[in-house]
Design a protein around this nucleic acid. Structure first.
Length: 680
DNA sequence: CATTTGGTAAACAGCC
DNA sequence: TGGCTGTTTACCAAAT
């Protein structure tokens, strides 16, 4: 019995192979629509799809964040109250333990939070459904916990009776007390660490942790976070957990940023990675690292104290000030049986939540792996840009192993590169003009753009039914160049289109005709008779010839170049959104990879991811960090020299993806689907 | 405003 | 016969 847990899918494949098929459906099927719409008349539809893509990505993220937040709080409460070794617990004479119900209540999602969520109108029904599912799951855990607790209590009482008969041994007690002390000290350290972390989160404005309840990260997310914020958030998500586990080892906080920018200067991280800071008030006063926040800065902040109330589970005693709270803490919640029991329960709660978090993380990773990693694979992406890549690399990535630098457009490195403006602009534009936008973008500046851009935004176009802003010629060329042999049959080209672009999973007759038309029309596509029929290849020189005219004079481009310097600056809202959509997944992937301590489940997934990335990197060899099409182009513009195919694209046409191993070589899933008959 | 370029539609031929 | 492949023409729209 298998059940797909992807988002709100309800399908229940009965075999793994079935499940895989189904999964592929997730990646491939645009979901919904069968209406045959004229290509140029579905602007709104496309926009809707785009938005959907946004929210789904955001949601995955949000859910995780919620879970983590809960966990964090629970852990804090638990840790501050002090732990005891299980052994000790067993021997601990248990009195009647009045554990409050409140304590037994893992903070699922409170009604207020639910309301908050509902108010975020970006949540789709599916997302809500998932939330509800999670809620239910948590409640289930709650029940289990309660049962567990009952049993525990019975057991303890039994023990108590026994011990009353046997009497106590003071010596043993003393020993245990010493243990406890040491343990508590250790815990205090951990707690401080956590506190710093929380504070930093709060400072960044990413989390509005309110004393009463876990913050709901959905809010900032829903209100249009910029990629950087997401990056940051993700960083927190992935690193917090590990930071909590590995006491004091802050290296885990090295996120993608650090990895990408410089492994030696984590403190610069947020500055660099937050080029958008100026656009966002919240981030402008950005506090770089949580490590830098000393506990002393907030002497009166205590996880168990907030708004003048003791936050000890089930306590809620009012404490005028921090001092009185401390008194209260020491007197009421001293190391006694009651506290111990409460702590134990809290521990259970945390464990359960941790479990849940792990599961959700796993699920998320699986989803990401499915949606992203797989897509990175067949990318031989010709590298048009040695020039730029060398620049960028030397600036940013040189210290770190270049192979470990899967870059996305919003990567911190991007801003560093002086002249760059690229994919985001291009794609952005395309996204807003989605519908009828045709051609030009890619080809205008010659292939490099399209190659890199296609590759770069693969993931996006793969899942969002947005018309790619590339000409058929560019796409065909890309398809062919990506193939190991640099040649494809017509059918293989078709397959590439459907595989890489959700958009081309519809209206097959139309675009297939266009593909054929282009193949025949352009001299750059050469038909080669093969043993098994005919294959198509690309005549790079011819392809370049197509657009001999120079772009150097293009005002818009110059403008781009100028603004590009401020790659980091303030993209307008639309732009942000667009790039967010494009980059979110790559971002996640990158981030998760940068985090060495995701936990047990992580290692496996990470391996997988790493594998994929390595693969990608190896394929791209000298790929520029950002794989930015514009970067690719820039050298040309800057030099304002006539396009020399050799120079502009030398590596491009020559780079072979030796080890390129497309998973889907023979997927015919979308071929000529009946759905497609319905055009015109 | 003319030209170029790209997208779409369609007719057609050859082949399997 | 029908589908696929490939070529070609026509038309339109956008960009130049």
């Amino acid at each position: 019995m298998f059940q797909c847990v992807f988002s709100s899918s309800v399908l229940q494949p009965h075999s793994t192979s079935c499940l895989f098929k189904h999964l592929f459906y997730h990646s491939a099927t645009p979901a919904s629509q069968k209406q045959p719409e004229p290509i140029y008349s579905k602007k709104t539809e496309i926009q809707r799809q785009t938005v959907r893509a946004h929210s789904v990505k955001l949601f995955i993220f949000s859910a995780l964040q919620v879970a983590r937040q809960l966990l964090l709080q629970q852990q804090q409460q638990q840790q501050v109250s002090g732990l005891k070794s299980p052994k000790r617990n067993d021997k601990q004479p248990a009195l009647q333990v009045p554990v409050s119900v409140a304590m037994m209540t893992p903070q699922v999602i409170t009604p207020q939070q639910m309301q908050q969520i509902l108010q975020q109108q970006v949540l789709s029904p599916q997302q809500l459904q998932v939330l509800l599912q999670q809620q239910q799951a948590l409640m289930l855990q709650q029940q289990q916990l309660q049962e567990f607790y009952k049993k525990q209590q019975e057991q303890l009482q039994l023990q108590l009776l026994q011990q009353q008969h046997a009497g106590k041994q003071p010596k043993e007690q003393q020993q245990v007390a010493t243990q406890q002390l040491a343990f508590q000290q250790q815990l205090l350290q951990m707690q401080q660490l956590q506190q710093q972390h929380l504070l930093s989160l709060q400072r960044q404005g990413l989390l509005t942790i309110q004393p009463g309840q876990p913050a709901l990260p959905l809010q900032p997310l829903a209100q249009g976070m910029i990629p950087t914020e997401l990056q940051q958030l993700w960083k927190e998500v992935t690193s917090a957990h590990s930071a909590e586990e590995t006491t004091g080892s802050n290296h885990s906080s090295l996120d993608l940023t650090t990895t990408c920018v410089s492994s030696s200067a984590p403190s610069k991280t947020s500055l660099i990675m937050n080029p958008h800071a100026s656009t966002n008030g919240q981030l402008s006063v950005h506090t770089p690292k949580r490590e830098s926040l000393s506990h002393e800065e907030h002497p009166h902040s205590h996880p168990l104290y907030g708004h003048g109330v003791c936050k000890w589970p089930g306590c809620e005693a009012v404490c005028e000030d921090f001092q009185s709270f401390l008194k209260h803490l020491n007197s009421e919640h001293a190391l006694d049986d009651r506290s111990t029991a409460q702590c134990r329960v809290q521990m259970q709660v945390v464990q359960q939540l941790e479990l849940q978090l792990a599961k959700d993380k796993e699920r998320l990773q699986a989803m990401m792996t499915h949606l992203h990693v797989k897509s990175t694979e067949p990318k031989a992406a010709p590298q048009p840009l040695n020039l730029v890549s060398s620049v960028t690399l030397s600036k940013s990535a040189s210290e770190a192993s270049p192979q470990s630098l899967p870059h996305t457009p919003t990567t911190p490195t991007a801003p560093i590169t002086p002249v760059t403006q690229g994919p985001s602009v291009i794609t952005t534009t395309s996204m807003h003009t989605v519908g009828p936008i045709r051609r030009r973008y890619s080809d205008k500046y010659n292939v490099p753009i399209s190659s890199a851009d296609i590759a770069q935004n693969q993931e996006f176009y793969k899942n969002a039914e947005v018309r790619p802003p590339f000409t058929y010629a560019s796409l065909i060329r890309q398809a062919i160049l990506e193939s190991p042999e640099k040649q494809l049959t017509l059918n293989e080209i078709y397959n590439w289109f459907t595989r890489m672009f959700a958009y081309f999973r519809r209206n097959a007759a139309t675009w297939k005709n266009a593909v054929r038309h282009n193949l025949s029309l352009h001299k750059c596509f050469v038909r080669v008779e093969n043993v098994k029929g005919a294959v198509w290849t690309v005549d790079e020189v011819e392809f370049q010839k197509r657009r001999p005219q120079k772009i150097s004079g293009n005002p818009s481009l110059i403008k781009n170049m100028q603004t590009s310097h401020a790659y980091c600056t303030p993209l307008n809202a639309a732009l942000q959104q667009a790039s967010m959509a494009e980059n979110s997944i790559p971002l996640y992937t990158t981030a998760s990879m940068g985090n060495p301590t995701l936990g047990n489940l992580a290692s496996a997934i990470r391996e997988e991811l790493n594998g994929a990335m390595e693969h990608t990197n190896s394929n791209e060899s000298d790929s520029s960090p950002g794989r930015s099409p514009l970067q690719a182009v820039h050298p040309v513009h800057v030099k304002e020299e006539p396009l020399d195919p050799e120079e502009a694209e030398g590596p491009l046409s020559l780079v072979t993806t030796a080890n390129h191993s497309p998973d889907f070589d023979h997927d015919r899933d979308y071929e000529d689907e009946p759905v497609n008959e319905d055009m015109e």
